[in-house]
Write a protein that binds this DNA or RNA. Structure first.
Lengths: 140, 140
DNA sequence: GTTCCTGCAAAAGCTTTGCAGAAGA
DNA sequence: TCTTCTGCAAAGCTTTTGCAGGAAC
């Protein structure tokens, strides 16, 4: 599935975001590489394509995307912020060894927590840590 | 319930941590104020009691406590790291408005996730965001 | 006497801010 | 033309590191 300028541009338009070249490229990157990147990864990978790109613009773009609801920030304790273009509810698994992040499906929408009955829950996140299959093999 | 030097000291000993005055005071603070503090809060609140205390020592102490398993770092996307002396598994709710963090009980240990069958899950965290009862009242 | 701990100062790393020039409507 | 966007430089914050003096065992 290859996304072209028009598709990306109209996707931005849905979120009331104007289509600059930088924003198009960042969105394209996020869609093609669903890998929970941080700002540095996005910057480094796009730098070849747009040599004049600055990190500030990547920061601006990601903050804009988050505010618009196009991407989500991951609830992951790390030094940097990681982003996810899949905004449907799902869990995240982070490997303690290789730091790779995987998505998984989990039903926490139907979870009723007695103690939170008077709270308004807007966002639910599930975050597991441990060892991924690849690292488990390498250890044994 | 008042904890004295001996109780605190032996609790540290259980985790093979030597009982310096600073460490005793930090542990005392954590036990008395189960409030998910960050380094700055701990530092500010203990500074009156120990005027010579430095932030570096608080950082050192908390890193030591985490490594020993005496406290846990919260999985909360914030600029700072928050700590929890309750190490049993439970969920955290953070209010978007007043930033207060509350604990709640949730059973995610029994949750079986098909996709993670080949993963080794060491740590499970549930993190909800939204509005706490107090802030809900103030808005309406 | 040795080892470990504290705390100052400096450094490191991520993110935001100010601003001038460029691009877009 | 007027508003918005980009990107450089600098600043802001949290956290870590180096190190010398001090404390603990």
């Amino acid at each position: 599935m290859k996304l072209h300028y028009k598709d990306l541009s109209s996707r931005l338009a849905e979120y009331n975001i104007r289509p600059s070249i930088q924003r198009i490229k960042v969105l394209d990157y996020l869609v093609k590489n669903q890998c929970h990147p941080n700002v540095d990864q996005i910057y480094k990978d796009l730098h070849n394509d747009i040599p004049t790109l600055s990190k500030t613009t990547v920061y601006n773009t990601m903050n804009l995307f988050v505010k618009a609801g196009l991407v989500k920030e991951l609830t992951i304790k790390d030094n940097e912020i990681h982003y996810d273009i899949v905004t449907e509810i799902h869990g995240h698994f982070k490997c303690d060894r290789c730091s790779a992040i995987s998505n998984f499906n989990v039903d926490i929408e139907s979870l009723v927590v007695e103690e939170l009955i008077n709270f308004k829950i807007i966002n639910r996140d599930v975050y597991f840590k441990g060892l991924c299959p690849k690292c488990l093999l390498n250890i044994n």
